[in-house]
Simulated assay, not measured.
Amino acid sequence: MKQCRRARKAHIDKANALSVTKQCEVLQISRSSHYYRKVPQSNLNLNLMRLIDEEFLNRPWKGVPRMTNWLQQDMGYAINKKRVERLYRVMGLSASAPGPATSKKGKGKKHKIFPYLLRNLNITASNQVWAMDITYIPVQGGYLYLCAVIDLYSRFVVGWSLSNTMTSEWCRDTVETAIGKYGKPEIFNTDQGSQFTADLFTEFITKQGIALSMDGKGRALDNIFIERLWRSVKYENVYLYAYQDGRACYDGLKQYFQYYNMERRHQSLAYEVPAQVYNRTKKEAA
Protein backbone atom coordinates (compact mmCIF):
# COMPACT_ATOMS: atom_id res chain seq x y z
CA MET A 1 0.00 0.00 0.00
CA LYS A 2 1.38 3.40 -0.97
CA GLN A 3 1.78 5.73 2.04
CA CYS A 4 1.83 9.52 2.19
CA ARG A 5 5.08 11.36 2.97
CA ARG A 6 4.06 12.01 6.61
CA ALA A 7 3.36 8.31 7.19
CA ARG A 8 6.69 7.32 5.65
CA LYS A 9 8.53 9.82 7.87
CA ALA A 10 7.05 8.12 10.95
CA HIS A 11 9.04 4.98 10.10
CA ILE A 12 12.41 6.73 10.56
CA ASP A 13 14.24 5.45 13.65
CA LYS A 14 17.43 7.17 14.80
CA ALA A 15 18.39 4.03 16.75
CA ASN A 16 18.29 1.94 13.59
CA ALA A 17 21.55 0.48 12.28
CA LEU A 18 20.92 2.35 9.03
CA SER A 19 21.76 6.05 9.06
CA VAL A 20 18.94 8.58 8.76
CA THR A 21 20.21 9.32 5.24
CA LYS A 22 19.84 5.69 4.14
CA GLN A 23 16.43 5.35 5.79
CA CYS A 24 15.21 8.47 3.95
CA GLU A 25 16.44 7.01 0.66
CA VAL A 26 14.66 3.70 1.29
CA LEU A 27 11.44 5.50 2.26
CA GLN A 28 11.79 7.93 -0.68
CA ILE A 29 11.49 11.12 1.34
CA SER A 30 13.66 14.22 1.53
CA ARG A 31 16.24 14.12 4.33
CA SER A 32 15.78 17.87 4.76
CA SER A 33 12.03 17.51 5.29
CA HIS A 34 12.67 14.84 7.94
CA TYR A 35 14.79 17.20 10.01
CA TYR A 36 12.44 20.19 9.75
CA ARG A 37 10.05 21.08 12.56
CA LYS A 38 8.87 24.65 13.10
CA VAL A 39 10.45 26.41 16.09
CA PRO A 40 8.02 28.91 17.65
CA GLN A 41 9.10 32.36 18.79
CA SER A 42 7.21 35.49 19.76
CA ASN A 43 6.46 37.96 16.97
CA LEU A 44 8.81 40.46 18.61
CA ASN A 45 11.67 37.97 18.67
CA LEU A 46 11.05 36.91 15.08
CA ASN A 47 11.10 40.55 13.93
CA LEU A 48 14.29 41.19 15.88
CA MET A 49 15.94 38.05 14.53
CA ARG A 50 15.14 39.07 10.97
CA LEU A 51 16.68 42.53 11.54
CA ILE A 52 19.72 41.11 13.34
CA ASP A 53 20.28 38.57 10.57
CA GLU A 54 20.47 41.16 7.81
CA GLU A 55 22.46 43.68 9.84
CA PHE A 56 24.95 41.02 10.94
CA LEU A 57 25.31 39.75 7.38
CA ASN A 58 26.45 43.24 6.35
CA ARG A 59 28.38 44.12 9.54
CA PRO A 60 29.63 40.88 11.12
CA TRP A 61 31.84 42.76 13.57
CA LYS A 62 28.78 43.93 15.51
CA GLY A 63 28.63 42.27 18.91
CA VAL A 64 25.70 42.29 21.30
CA PRO A 65 26.29 45.82 22.72
CA ARG A 66 26.53 47.46 19.29
CA MET A 67 23.60 45.47 17.94
CA THR A 68 21.49 46.37 20.99
CA ASN A 69 22.32 50.04 20.52
CA TRP A 70 21.46 49.87 16.81
CA LEU A 71 18.10 48.20 17.51
CA GLN A 72 17.30 50.78 20.21
CA GLN A 73 18.57 53.98 18.63
CA ASP A 74 18.11 53.36 14.91
CA MET A 75 15.24 50.89 14.75
CA GLY A 76 13.21 52.14 17.72
CA TYR A 77 12.94 48.92 19.76
CA ALA A 78 12.71 49.24 23.57
CA ILE A 79 14.68 46.10 24.33
CA ASN A 80 17.54 45.20 26.64
CA LYS A 81 20.92 43.61 26.11
CA LYS A 82 19.85 40.27 27.61
CA ARG A 83 17.24 39.73 24.91
CA VAL A 84 19.78 40.38 22.16
CA GLU A 85 22.28 38.05 23.85
CA ARG A 86 19.65 35.30 23.90
CA LEU A 87 18.81 35.83 20.24
CA TYR A 88 22.49 35.72 19.30
CA ARG A 89 22.69 32.30 20.97
CA VAL A 90 19.56 31.06 19.21
CA MET A 91 20.88 32.24 15.85
CA GLY A 92 24.38 30.88 16.46
CA LEU A 93 26.04 34.28 16.07
CA SER A 94 29.30 35.47 17.57
CA ALA A 95 31.09 38.71 16.77
CA SER A 96 34.58 37.40 17.45
CA ALA A 97 36.48 39.71 15.12
CA PRO A 98 36.59 39.84 12.19
CA GLY A 99 33.32 37.95 11.68
CA PRO A 100 30.71 35.41 12.70
CA ALA A 101 31.15 31.93 14.14
CA THR A 102 28.16 29.78 13.35
CA SER A 103 28.05 27.89 16.62
CA LYS A 104 29.63 27.50 20.02
CA LYS A 105 33.01 25.83 20.31
CA GLY A 106 32.69 22.28 21.64
CA LYS A 107 34.27 21.35 24.95
CA GLY A 108 35.22 18.08 26.61
CA LYS A 109 36.68 14.71 25.67
CA LYS A 110 34.16 14.08 22.90
CA HIS A 111 35.25 17.20 21.00
CA LYS A 112 38.49 17.65 19.09
CA ILE A 113 39.96 20.66 17.30
CA PHE A 114 41.87 19.97 14.09
CA PRO A 115 44.57 22.25 12.59
CA TYR A 116 43.80 24.68 9.80
CA LEU A 117 45.18 23.20 6.57
CA LEU A 118 44.28 25.83 3.97
CA ARG A 119 46.88 28.48 4.81
CA ASN A 120 49.00 29.09 1.69
CA LEU A 121 47.38 26.08 0.01
CA ASN A 122 47.10 26.34 -3.76
CA ILE A 123 43.63 25.04 -4.64
CA THR A 124 43.78 23.94 -8.27
CA ALA A 125 40.86 21.57 -8.86
CA SER A 126 37.38 20.57 -7.77
CA ASN A 127 37.08 17.94 -5.02
CA GLN A 128 40.36 19.14 -3.57
CA VAL A 129 38.75 21.14 -0.74
CA TRP A 130 35.14 21.24 0.47
CA ALA A 131 33.89 23.60 3.18
CA MET A 132 30.78 23.43 5.37
CA ASP A 133 28.92 25.99 7.44
CA ILE A 134 25.52 26.68 9.03
CA THR A 135 23.34 29.79 8.90
CA TYR A 136 19.99 30.99 10.28
CA ILE A 137 16.99 31.14 7.92
CA PRO A 138 13.80 33.03 8.87
CA VAL A 139 10.37 31.61 7.97
CA GLN A 140 6.93 32.87 8.91
CA GLY A 141 6.21 32.01 12.54
CA GLY A 142 9.61 30.43 13.16
CA TYR A 143 13.08 29.81 11.80
CA LEU A 144 15.33 27.11 10.42
CA TYR A 145 19.02 26.39 10.12
CA LEU A 146 20.58 25.79 6.72
CA CYS A 147 23.84 23.93 6.28
CA ALA A 148 25.70 23.69 3.00
CA VAL A 149 28.82 22.03 1.64
CA ILE A 150 30.63 23.95 -1.10
CA ASP A 151 33.52 22.99 -3.35
CA LEU A 152 35.99 25.83 -2.89
CA TYR A 153 37.56 25.75 -6.33
CA SER A 154 34.36 25.78 -8.40
CA ARG A 155 31.89 27.30 -5.85
CA PHE A 156 29.67 24.30 -6.66
CA VAL A 157 27.28 23.43 -3.80
CA VAL A 158 27.63 19.66 -3.41
CA GLY A 159 25.16 19.35 -0.55
CA TRP A 160 22.70 21.26 1.64
CA SER A 161 19.98 20.59 4.20
CA LEU A 162 17.45 22.33 6.47
CA SER A 163 16.85 21.57 10.15
CA ASN A 164 15.34 23.18 13.23
CA THR A 165 18.36 22.19 15.36
CA MET A 166 22.11 22.29 14.79
CA THR A 167 23.31 18.74 15.47
CA SER A 168 26.36 16.73 14.50
CA GLU A 169 24.15 13.95 13.14
CA TRP A 170 22.42 16.37 10.77
CA CYS A 171 25.77 17.71 9.52
CA ARG A 172 27.21 14.21 9.11
CA ASP A 173 24.19 13.00 7.13
CA THR A 174 24.42 16.02 4.81
CA VAL A 175 28.10 15.28 4.12
CA GLU A 176 27.37 11.58 3.66
CA THR A 177 24.81 12.35 0.98
CA ALA A 178 27.22 14.74 -0.79
CA ILE A 179 29.96 12.11 -0.83
CA GLY A 180 27.51 9.58 -2.22
CA LYS A 181 26.73 11.90 -5.13
CA TYR A 182 30.08 13.51 -5.88
CA GLY A 183 32.85 11.45 -4.32
CA LYS A 184 35.25 12.56 -1.57
CA PRO A 185 37.36 15.71 -1.26
CA GLU A 186 40.97 15.58 -0.13
CA ILE A 187 40.36 18.19 2.59
CA PHE A 188 37.15 19.12 4.43
CA ASN A 189 37.10 22.53 6.16
CA THR A 190 34.73 23.77 8.91
CA ASP A 191 34.72 26.24 11.78
CA GLN A 192 35.20 25.12 15.39
CA GLY A 193 31.50 24.82 16.16
CA SER A 194 30.44 21.99 18.45
CA GLN A 195 28.60 20.24 15.60
CA PHE A 196 31.88 19.87 13.73
CA THR A 197 34.23 19.10 16.64
CA ALA A 198 32.05 16.28 18.04
CA ASP A 199 33.43 12.74 17.69
CA LEU A 200 30.39 11.66 15.69
CA PHE A 201 31.27 14.16 12.95
CA THR A 202 35.08 14.14 13.05
CA GLU A 203 35.34 10.35 13.08
CA PHE A 204 33.01 10.09 10.10
CA ILE A 205 35.16 12.50 8.09
CA THR A 206 38.53 11.01 9.00
CA LYS A 207 37.38 7.41 8.47
CA GLN A 208 36.64 8.40 4.87
CA GLY A 209 40.35 9.13 4.44
CA ILE A 210 39.63 12.87 4.27
CA ALA A 211 41.89 15.40 6.01
CA LEU A 212 39.83 17.55 8.38
CA SER A 213 40.68 21.25 8.65
CA MET A 214 39.21 23.82 11.05
CA ASP A 215 39.24 27.60 10.88
CA GLY A 216 41.17 29.55 13.47
CA LYS A 217 38.97 31.04 16.19
CA GLY A 218 37.48 34.34 15.06
CA ARG A 219 38.88 34.03 11.52
CA ALA A 220 35.84 34.52 9.29
CA LEU A 221 38.09 35.03 6.27
CA ASP A 222 39.17 31.38 6.56
CA ASN A 223 35.72 30.40 5.29
CA ILE A 224 35.07 33.45 3.11
CA PHE A 225 33.63 31.58 0.14
CA ILE A 226 30.80 30.00 2.07
CA GLU A 227 30.11 33.33 3.79
CA ARG A 228 29.66 34.81 0.31
CA LEU A 229 27.30 31.94 -0.48
CA TRP A 230 25.12 32.93 2.50
CA ARG A 231 24.91 36.51 1.22
CA SER A 232 23.78 35.26 -2.18
CA VAL A 233 21.24 32.82 -0.74
CA LYS A 234 19.68 35.42 1.53
CA TYR A 235 19.65 38.48 -0.72
CA GLU A 236 18.73 36.63 -3.91
CA ASN A 237 16.18 34.25 -2.38
CA VAL A 238 15.30 34.07 1.33
CA TYR A 239 14.71 37.78 1.98
CA LEU A 240 12.81 38.20 -1.26
CA TYR A 241 10.30 35.40 -0.79
CA ALA A 242 9.70 35.39 3.01
CA TYR A 243 8.70 31.73 3.04
CA GLN A 244 5.49 30.83 4.88
CA ASP A 245 6.67 27.48 6.22
CA GLY A 246 9.43 24.90 6.11
CA ARG A 247 8.11 23.04 3.08
CA ALA A 248 7.93 26.24 1.02
CA CYS A 249 11.42 27.17 2.21
CA TYR A 250 12.80 23.76 1.22
CA ASP A 251 11.18 23.90 -2.23
CA GLY A 252 12.38 27.46 -2.80
CA LEU A 253 15.94 26.73 -1.75
CA LYS A 254 15.99 23.60 -3.89
CA GLN A 255 15.18 25.74 -6.92
CA TYR A 256 17.72 28.37 -5.88
CA PHE A 257 20.62 25.95 -5.45
CA GLN A 258 19.78 24.43 -8.82
CA TYR A 259 20.00 27.94 -10.31
CA TYR A 260 23.16 28.75 -8.32
CA ASN A 261 24.97 25.63 -9.51
CA MET A 262 23.71 25.41 -13.08
CA GLU A 263 22.96 28.99 -14.23
CA ARG A 264 24.42 31.70 -11.98
CA ARG A 265 27.64 33.07 -13.49
CA HIS A 266 30.42 34.12 -11.12
CA GLN A 267 32.86 36.91 -11.82
CA SER A 268 35.54 35.02 -9.87
CA LEU A 269 35.06 32.06 -12.25
CA ALA A 270 35.55 34.22 -15.35
CA TYR A 271 31.75 34.33 -15.67
CA GLU A 272 31.36 30.58 -15.91
CA VAL A 273 28.76 28.72 -13.84
CA PRO A 274 29.90 26.48 -10.94
CA ALA A 275 28.72 23.22 -12.53
CA GLN A 276 30.85 23.82 -15.64
CA VAL A 277 33.99 24.47 -13.61
CA TYR A 278 33.30 21.63 -11.19
CA ASN A 279 32.82 18.98 -13.88
CA ARG A 280 35.79 20.14 -15.95
CA THR A 281 38.30 20.16 -13.11
CA LYS A 282 37.01 17.42 -10.81
CA LYS A 283 39.51 15.24 -9.00
CA GLU A 284 38.24 11.69 -8.79
CA ALA A 285 38.19 10.07 -5.35
CA ALA A 286 41.04 7.66 -4.74
Score class of each variant (00 low, 15 high):
Asn223Ile: 06
Ala270Glu: 14
Ile226Asp: 08
Asp199Leu: 08
Leu87Tyr: 01
Val139Gln: 02
Lys62Phe: 15
Val139His: 01
Arg89Met: 08
Gln255Met: 12
Lys2Ala: 09
Gln244Leu: 12
Tyr143Gln: 02
Trp230His: 07
Glu284Ile: 11
Lys184Cys: 12
Asp74Cys: 11
Ile187Ser: 02
Leu71Met: 09
Leu212His: 15
Glu272Asp: 13
Tyr88Cys: 05
Gly183Glu: 06
Gly246Asn: 06
Asn69Phe: 05
Ser194Lys: 11
Ala101Ile: 13
Asn189Lys: 01
Ile29Lys: 02
Lys105Tyr: 02
Ile79Cys: 01
Thr102Ser: 15
Ile113Glu: 09
Lys81Ser: 03
Lys104Gln: 14
Tyr143Asp: 11
Ala101Trp: 02
Met49Leu: 05
Lys109Pro: 00
Asp133Arg: 08
Ala248Tyr: 01
Val26Lys: 12
Pro100Gln: 11
Leu46Tyr: 04
Lys62Leu: 15
Ser154Tyr: 05
Tyr243Ala: 08
Ser268Gln: 07
Arg280His: 09
Lys254Arg: 14
Ala248Lys: 11
Tyr250Gly: 01
Trp61Glu: 13
Glu227Ala: 06
Lys105Thr: 12
Glu284Arg: 10
Arg31Pro: 13
Ile29Asn: 01
Arg86Phe: 09
Gly183Gln: 04
Cys4Ile: 09
Ala242Glu: 15
Gly63Met: 04
Phe201Cys: 07
Asp222Asn: 11
Leu18Thr: 01
Thr135Ser: 14
Glu54His: 11
Ser42Asp: 02
Ala248Gly: 00
Tyr153Gly: 03
Gln276Arg: 13
Cys24Ala: 15
Asn279Arg: 12
